[in-house]
Amino acid sequence: MTDTAMAATALGKRFGRRGGWALRDCTFRLPAGRVCAVVGPNGAGKSTLLALAAGLLAPTEGRVTVLGTDPASARARVGYVAQDKPLYPQLSVAETLRVGADLNPGRWDAETAERIVSAGDLDPRKKIRSLSGGQRTRVALALALGKRPELLLLDEPMADLDPLARHELMGTLMARAAQYGTTIVMSSHVVAELEDSCDHLLLVGGGRVRLAGEIDDLLAAHTRVSTATGSTGPTSEDGSPDSAPGGLPELAPHTVVESRVTGRQLTALVRPAGPLPDDWRTSTPSLEELVLAYLRNPQAAPLTPAEPEEAAV
């Protein structure tokens, strides 16, 4: 048994020979049993990353492994729901689930699939083409969960759902994670949507991984500080103020993600490199603050604790 659900090493994907890179230099490790949020703006490379992990795309460079093997070999153990929830429009809901059973002989969990569908008050005889977006999501999730995946990859799973269905289906997913230790990876461009459900974060921006790790660790590694400018040491002694990374010499030893001066007030989000001065006011950022700070500042140094893959034994 492996305890790495998903790992990427220098993973990159370019569409077309001269096209731009949708994803590049992607290196991270997701331990098994986590619920991981893949967050980033639209077009950041989230879908590409998930499609690579699902084996739908071949990487242009680097490699991705899922469940300790290559995506093609892990196919039967990985569930995937694409962003636009493709389903066969000509089939009924019940027929769709039967196709799921046909495609997953020996693995199919008909009871689970039917339970997810019936929780949405869906008539099994209804044709897929007549379903609403939320109902399609429900059927797509039923197909993905029916195959008893060890790793579930969900691309914007909640986008089409009303708040009630969103809560209920998220509950179903969490129950799955609790009961079977299923690793769940879901993408969204709305951080708040995933904050309570996820314990691991992958922040993707501009085709690169900006943050990767346990959410608690990532929050703990960052501090929001506010202080009066020039309160710690004279500015002039540190040379020209603008030369320091982040532009403010007070913050010099620390990694600055974002800083702002309003009047004489300096506020910043930093990764402290050591103890902060006692007279600074500090607080832990919220996940949303953290994510937004990184997205607003594409030049901020990424935090992706690179663990050797061999650690998984």
């Binding site: 619920v35 509950g171 969490m174 129950a175 609790a178 309570d196």
Partner: peptide, 17 residues
């Protein structure tokens, strides 16, 4: 309640429970 029961009802992460 088991972690499964709590997360099914609240949609929060099992580790939180």
């Amino acid at each position: 309640p088991t972690a499964r029961e709590v997360v099914e009802a609240t949609a929060i992460n099992p580790n939180t429970v």
